[in-house]
Write a protein that binds this DNA or RNA. Sequence first.
RNA 1: GGCUGAGUGGCAGAGUGGUUAUGCAGCGGCCUGCAAAGCCGUGUACAGCGGUUCGAUUCCGCUCUCAGCCUCCA
Length: 464
Amino acid sequence: MLKIHNNLTRQKEIFKPIKEGKVTMYVCGMTVYDFCHIGHARVMVVFDVVSRYLREQGYDLTYVRNVTDIDDKIIKRANENGEDITSLTERYIVAMHEDERALGVLPPDIEPKATQSMEDIISMISTLIDKGYGYVGANGDIFYSVSRFEKYGQLSGKNLEELQAGERVDVDEAKQNPFDFVLWKMSKADEPSWDSPWGKGRPGWHIECSAMSTKCLGDHFDIHGGGMDLQFPHHENEIAQSEGATGHKFVNFWMHNGFVRINEEKMSKSLGNFFTVREVLERYRPEVVRFFILSSQYRSPLNYSNESLDEASSALRRLYTALRDLKGGRESDAAKPFVERFYEAMNDDFNTPVAVAVLFDIAREINRQKGESDELAASLGNTLKRLSGLLGLLENEPEAFLKLSDGVATESALGDKEIDQLIEERITARANKEWAEADRIRDLLKEQGVILEDITGGTSWRRG
RNA sequence: GGCUGAGUGGCAGAGUGGUUAUGCAGCGGCCUGCAAAGCCGUGUACAGCGGUUCGAUUCCGCUCUCAGCCUCCA
């Protein structure tokens, strides 16, 4: 029985979809004006695992993740580059898809773009105005009147009185209330714009998600996800807009993933302390990054450092080492306790660190069985591969994984053929009990980052 | 200031009212020509102070510390 921590109630609740057997999920995606950083990677990987698991549980899932391709930052960046916003956003959408594929993230079913959803956006704003939630501000922009929406603050646990006490909100004369937010922003002469009943302009940030999610999934859907920082005001505003416009409940389960941190501080564009996915992938293999992300629970903070990535790499090597040299075979009942624990962990709000711990327990059992019962070892190996596959892990060939190293430094070192050649020479030396020569070759390879393992029936190698 | 969340062994990271997380690193042993890998064993961990309890790291209160949101942000 799957339980999900619902941020609307701040507790774990038994997950029950609106329509039996079907799940509808919307995740706030990227604003495409730059490369994705590791924080974005976490959202992608976390909800990729959620979607894989829901499907594995037999649900017919529709997974929507939007692309924000019109916004102030995009306009600013395009101006700085002296290019059209479309050429800017298209370039970064391609880059985002490359990053996703590299990380083994399966694409969402629908990936709507704000610029292609103008009709729905305008229609929702019209409805909001008709229902008295939207008004024309002193500057011509259309605003949402938060005081009209009684439940405003339900998701973030804030109320308007407390918010008034805050000092970080701009006083804008055009608004009736400082917490009112823009639904439609009038464009200046040289800005990209779309026609609307209120004049040429562009949508506010929050309205696009309300419009696209309800368009793709209906007025009421199961899961809405995104980063912690979107909880307020973005998701709060989405609820106000959607429920204001449709008149009924918007989303049942709200899921927010924790931040990636660097030195205990949030990684973000504005702080400038971010690493892009492609920078990290120059140094670590995609699966290592994925393992790193899944080694902590999705709601916890995740501290990024080279040490953590190195550790993820070592840990993954242990799993692949267990899978090495296994024969094929079917899964057996012997795996049952492990399988049960794995599902129990996943059912507990996607507790991937515990699920991963089970993978290590299976690996230990495989290692014990190797030589004892190769059949059982192989069978457990299949279980290990199946379960890790649900996390998008261990999908490479063990030999292939072990023979590659992280980083580019060792790429230019010895090629596989030369390594095999030296190993042959060493095998001959060992056969003649020329230990000094055998050790010389082993040390030589070690200097090149190649570690030998003499196992029964031969010598295998890996890059350390 | 308001509102969240968190403080676990050398590090990372789960979890629990009384019993082994798991991984990385360390130490001892087995295996090995020697290694590597693997297996076995090993570390008096739960921020502090009170309270509830037969018993609390786990529940309650207070204190301290950290992070996040309250402005764009995954």
